[in-house]
Design a protein around this nucleic acid. Structure first.
Lengths: 339, 339
DNA sequence: ATTGGCACTCGCGCTCGCCGAGTGCTACCC
DNA sequence: GGGTAGCACTCGGCGAGCGCGAGTGCCAAT
């Protein structure tokens, strides 16, 4: 009994099941795939695959369906790449290039990815913590408020309002702005923290409460996990496969997707798994609500990535297709953000 | 046959149906509501209500269910207000006050509203077109790029990058910044357009391409419909009522909610319907995908509102409760944004 | 190791018949 | 004239029973 053929059988099962949504039987396999053996032989192989925990039958005398483990083996060892057409690539490039600002880029990217994969797409905003500071702007608002606008090299713009105890002195603010930018611009954590600390020390001597407050707020904003953001699109694609792929309801999945915290943790875990495209299948997501989904992600952004994006779909998804779409969008996004 | 009692019957039907999800029969009505008449009498009233198109029976010999029109009458004439508890009000206030910036406020508000209504919540960002300009900041980035940061009184911060044909002259930029802010700060459309046009004319004389480009980009950004943004939360609540309230699938509803354009048009239409809380029931939404939902909205923000927020749920929703939640959140949001 | 044959299992879809909720109608009452 | 009681009727939902067919596992043969 050849090991190779057994894996061929597994691949055929996965492909057929993904295509038809129906448990696949030994006869159907021999008809659709030119494996040169009879159904009976296939049945033996299937029995072995079932023993190995790669496939199961939903009930006696139905066909076989891949298990999570089966999909895992398929993804790791069996699936080829499925390159995008030139037209698709061009479409991605032009769509993303038309964006006017970061929000727009992210918005376009997430919709695009949802569209390409026909699944739910997820895009994390460039992480503030991994971005370098481009510029800090201080805008006095009325006599007692100071608006701090923080701009990163990845295009994010964050603002915070400081409430002051004394009236704003324009000259002091102007000087602070200059020193802050000279000291910190171009830096990212953890260097940035060092620079900010040094700056705070300098001002501590002057006893300038204003300066220390500003430095503090800049540091906090860039360091806070709460500032990480994710956007989701294509939830309606979930509904399409509701009855078929999700035995019960898609409620838990939608809930998980709205839980930014959960999603962020998962995305960053996956970013660590692999520099390129990472895949989590079913329970590997380590999250109850996502136990019946798979997630394909990729980091994007320069130097190993400032953030992560991905696609969430049913266990029974087109892995090769999804993986190449995710990778393609990640690459284009990286290029746009660098430009 | 008393007209008043007939409407009482309608109210009872709506309330029971909303509570139980089941068609309500004449007997059940007399048991649950102390209307002082027999089931037979109720039946006569029901026949009349059915003739009037306010209720229907799903099939012969099932109870009655309100029609869109029935809900309409209920909302317009029968439903009282359902005030929130003091605790709820306090919770709303404190939750929203903790927000650190506009994004955070909106995010909190939309989640809160979803939570309160147990439905999908929708919040539009303060419209740029209806906001006044607070400040424009110009930040040179490299030699040939200028970042234009636009801050409105409602707290929105938008940025645009301009690509220049000549090197940036710091002094010119500084002067432009001052003049721009002097001329335009505090204004909103259409006054703002006038001020910007005047400014552009001034600079036209100087032949300063830079200035004209900046003025143009500010004007465009504040005028563009494309810049309107909506955020959605609580989609998972839809799934809960999937089988029961939505005969087919919630796919079309989710699609409609992701179509920002559609949603925005609907929201602004509704804002015009009424200064306070507006309700669209079923087909009144004028949108195929939302034909089986109702939407309750309210404007928020100072002076008749800078934007709209609302809740989307099944036809069979708790109208009084939803309406008061929507109104409450709108009020708190108005207050926070003003402060 | 592979194959053809064969008995067996079992889920799905169908029909059928019952039950009960709910109605509309008519005759009666105040 | 409006309200009520009684009654025959309708029809959807539910469960039982049944047949079909896909698919299996095993065994004997090659």
């Amino acid at each position: 009994m050849s090991e190779d053929r057994r894996l061929d059988v597994l691949r055929a099962i996965v492909e057929d099941y993904v295509a038809t949504r129906e448990p696949v039987g030994s006869r159907a396999l021999t008809e659709r795939h030119a494996i040169g053996v009879s159904p009976a032989t296939i049945r033996n192989d299937m029995a072995a695959l079932e023993d190995a925990g790669l496939i199961v039958q939903p009930h006696t005398s139905a066909g076989r369906v891949p298990t999570d483990l089966g999909y895992r083996v398929f993804v790791d060892r069996l699936s080829g790449v499925k390159p995008l057409s030139a037209a698709e690539k061009r479409a991605i490039g032009t769509l993303l290039e038309q964006a006017v600002d970061l929000d727009d880029v992210i918005d376009r990217a997430v919709r695009l990815l949802a569209q390409l994969t026909q699944q739910v797409a997820v895009v994390q905003y460039p992480s503030l913590r991994r971005s370098a500071l481009r510029h800090v702007e201080l805008v006095p608002v009325g006599a007692r408020h100071l608006l701090v606008v923080i701009i990163t090299t990845t295009g994010r713009v964050e603002q915070r309002t400081l409430e002051l105890r004394e009236d704003v002195d324009e000259a002091v603010v102007a000087q602070l702005r200059v020193r802050l930018n000279v000291a910190a611009a171009g830096l990212r954590l953890p260097d940035l923290d060092v620079a900010l600390d040094a700056l705070a020390d300098e001002f501590a001597a002057d006893g300038s409460a204003l300066a220390r407050a500003v430095v503090a707020v800049v540091g906090e904003t860039l360091a806070q996990e709460r500032e990480e953001r994710v956007v989701v699109a294509g939830a309606s694609h979930l509904a399409r496969s509701a009855g078929a792929d999700f035995p019960h309801t898609i409620g838990p999945v939608l809930e998980a997707l709205e839980e930014q915290v959960v999603l962020l943790r998962l995305l960053s875990e996956m970013a660590e798994d692999s520099a390129g495209v990472a895949v989590r299948i079913g329970r590997e997501t380590q999250h109850e609500g996502l136990a019946e989904t798979s997630i394909v992600t990729s980091g994007y952004g320069a130097e190993g990535g400032v953030a992560v994006l991905g696609s969430v779909g049913p266990l029974r998804m087109d892995y090769p297709g999804t993986m190449s779409a995710v990778r393609a969008v990640a690459r284009y996004l990286t290029r746009i953000l660098a430009g």
